[in-house]
């Protein structure tokens, strides 16, 4: 209960942040050349000034900026993100359609990076400055320096073009109508390369942090005590060291949530996945500012939600956190 109230308080503290973001981006978009009505008129193939004026009146774009901002925030409270003139649907609907692939991709990449970062970090820390450590640390540095979109393209060349093991892009095979388990397998097959591509840089970060925090914890007194008790090395690592070394890793999930969402813009474009990141890119290219603002709002919500979960996880891993405060 205590954990929940603590995390809840952090959640409440993020509401001003959210409002600050919305106001900032809203004002920023006022500087954008052209508004929604311009975009609509361009799509209709032009029109006269009177129509434009009518449309602006209809969408409330003729009001002063503070009034528009007030209107926007008031609509947000009711979860109305406005209307996308490009897609001809409410922005909330467009985003809801595009959110699942991104969430799926992020979860898969995060799990991949977290799991392998943990394993490699432990291996590297166990044999510090010996050859496994050197190889893992070098690979980590190279992965960190690899541009994700380039890795994705090269993976397509190798695995889709030459070996023809995996599909080069898309979320599922549209040619075949599949249901149940086959559809799941099909989607999973399509997500292997994007997951690796997005997860690579995070794998590099996680293994480095895991290695560092393992080395730190291995030097603490309670580890010596555990060894002196006669526990074998595996027990010492799994029961005593791991739980403590995991704390910085969990913190990192919260810190990296935003970076991961940003990275999905590029990865979804490489693999033509119909996700939120690709929607963000499309709305920039098509000047669909309403949708762009909606995506900013939803992304901030996702980041805040991830941090909420991280807070709870953190308190579970480290009982001291919930008893303090």
């Amino acid at each position: 209960m205590r954990i929940l109230s603590l995390a809840g308080r952090r959640l409440a503290a993020s509401i001003p942040t959210l409002i600050l973001i919305l106001i900032g981006v809203f004002l920023l978009l006022q500087f954008a050349p052209g508004d929604t009505v311009d975009a609509m008129m361009a799509q209709m193939g032009g029109g006269d000034a009177a129509t434009a004026r009518q449309l602006r009146q209809f969408y409330g774009l003729d009001l002063s900026v503070p009034a528009q901002l007030g209107n926007y925030l008031w609509r947000l409270v009711r979860f109305d993100l406005g209307f996308s003139s490009i897609y001809g649907k409410p922005v909330a609907t467009v985003i809801a359609e595009r959110l699942p692939p991104t969430i799926l991709l992020m979860t898969a990449s995060l799990s991949f990076a977290f799991f392998f970062g943990l394993v490699f970090g432990v291996i590297a820390a166990r044999g510090v400055n010996k050859w496994p450590d050197t190889i893992i640390s070098t690979l980590g540095l190279i992965f960190y320096a690899t541009p994700s979109f380039w890795f994705g393209l090269m993976a397509i060349v190798v695995f889709s073009v030459y070996l023809q093991w995996l599909p080069p892009g898309g979320f599922e095979d549209i040619g075949l109508v599949q249901t149940g388990i086959w559809r799941t397998l099909d989607i999973a097959q399509h997500l292997i390369l994007p997951t690796l591509t997005l997860g690579l840089i995070f794998l590099a970060i996680y293994l480095r942090i895991m290695r560092a925090s393992m080395l730190e914890v291995l030097n603490l007194d309670f580890v010596r005590t555990a060894r002196a008790k006669g526990l074998d090395e595996t027990r010492v690592i799994v029961r005593h060291v791991l739980r403590n070394a995991l704390l910085p890793m969990v913190t990192l999930i919260g810190l990296q949530a935003g970076t991961m969402l940003g990275g999905s813009v590029v990865v979804e474009s490489v693999f033509s996945l119909p996700g939120l990141g690709r929607l963000a890119y499309e709305s920039v290219v098509q000047r669909d500012l309403n949708t762009l603002l909606g995506i900013i709002f939803v992304s901030a919500l996702v980041v805040i939600a991830v941090n909420f979960v991280v807070d709870i996880l953190y308190a579970r891993l480290d009982p001291r956190i919930s008893t303090e405060a």
């Binding site: 993020s14 942040t17 959210l18 973001i21 981006v25 810190l255 935003g258 970076t259 991961m260 969402l261 940003g262 990275g263 813009v265 590029v266 963000a280 995506i295 900013i296 992304s299 901030a300 980041v303 805040i304």
Partner: peptide
């Protein structure tokens, strides 16, 4: 920091 920096 809450706003994904690539989106910004």
């Amino acid at each position: 920091q809450t706003l994904p920096n690539f989106l910004l």
